[in-house]
Design a protein around this nucleic acid. Structure first.
Lengths: 201, 201
DNA sequence: TTTATTGTTGTACGATCGTGCAATAACATG
DNA sequence: CATGTTATTGCACGATCGTACAACAATAAA
């Protein structure tokens, strides 16, 4: 978890990434209320001024952190899907199962998500970023449901349904880990997929 | 939405409630980042010191606001259920349908929810309050599923499933209102209930 | 080695934060 | 009207906030 010490003078991309990682760590540890420029800078081992140098402000840093987390999640998902082989149903199962396992079901990730959500209501550009990322997520689900033979006129509601189930389970799994297990969440989500499948002929 | 002007000296319960309402309004308008003691006080038309007089701190006020919102939601739910008559399935349908209509599906409510969630990771007492309130919510769902004849050994997963679907739909409906409609959410949730029902004999 | 470039530091600024506390004002009781 | 109670105010305090900017330091080019 601890990052390797970064040389005093780092390449912009490396430093940028280290600031994003530090922001995610602070959000997870302190919560959104305790996340400030100075705390993040200390966490990253740099001076506070450097954050202003790389980002317009702290909200831009949170937005960038959210985008980064989103990309991490997406990559982990695709790895799980690729490992499941070529059967469309097996790939869809792997997709939802991965949603409840590390590194996706993680308190640190949730903290970033929540901090980002808290900006959606007040800032239009953040709201659009959320719309875009969520649309891409549902589009991916739609693709996989289509490959499983779900009828085209049912695709829209089916993807919304599956996204809602997975999100609801993921959220509660992170917020109240003692309530039910990741295994149970997987069972529920796969049963949900069953009920969305076209009837066998 | 605007509250009637409160007499300079109010009964403690009335004043307390007006501070909670002001906190909810500020959370909805400014987001969690812009919610401070002074802003809430100005919104409520009182001096900043009064908030310290009624609450231990701003986090206690947010926790109280969350508890109040939870109670409002619960009351609205029960009204909808009672209006649905005595048929268990009709009552359950009314329960989930009400989740996607005002005053439950509301941006102001969501803002309070998110602000509260952002405190869960960092504060143990807040985490327990969340656990308790969510357990009560699922217990109510379990009751209604039981009344519909769901087998006892399926009750646990069934209630978790339905709670996840409703939560996921509610969350996305509030965050991205343009993505799908409340009517569509209702259709999805009722279809979910269908698939949880015991097979007709 | 000298020069140019630029990542990085450190600090200072004004604003706002949450909180504590004495003073004030409204109401109940006599 | 006088008196006690308490809701409420208004301000001051120290801390922390986000940001700006001049100085510094590390690297590449000449």
């Amino acid at each position: 978890m601890t990052t390797a010490p970064i040389p005093r003078r780092a390449e912009p991309d490396v430093r940028r990434q280290s600031l994003i990682a530090a922001c995610a760590r602070v959000l997870a540890r302190e919560g959104a209320a305790g996340t400030s420029v100075r705390v993040i800078a200390r966490e990253a081992g740099v001076s506070p001024g450097l954050i202003t140098h790389y980002f317009t402000g702290i909200e831009a840093l949170i937005a960038a952190t959210y985008a980064d987390v989103d990309q991490t999640v997406r990559a982990a998902m695709e790895v799980a899907v690729a490992a499941a082989g070529t059967d469309p149903r097996a790939r869809l199962d792997a997709f939802v199962t991965a949603s409840f396992a590390p590194p996706i079901a993680d308190r640190a990730l949730l903290a970033t998500w929540i901090a980002f959500w808290s900006l959606v209501s007040a800032r239009a550009d953040i709201a659009r970023q959320h719309d875009d990322q969520y649309a891409a997520y549902r589009a991916r689900l739609t693709e996989m449901l289509d490959a499983c033979g779900v009828a085209p006129d049912r695709l829209r509601l089916a993807s919304i349904t599956l996204a809602a189930v997975v999100d609801g389970l993921w959220l509660e799994l992170c917020l109240s880990p003692g309530c039910f297990s990741a295994q149970e969440a997987g069972v529920i989500a796969r049963a949900q997929i069953d009920s969305l499948m076209p009837p066998p002929k």
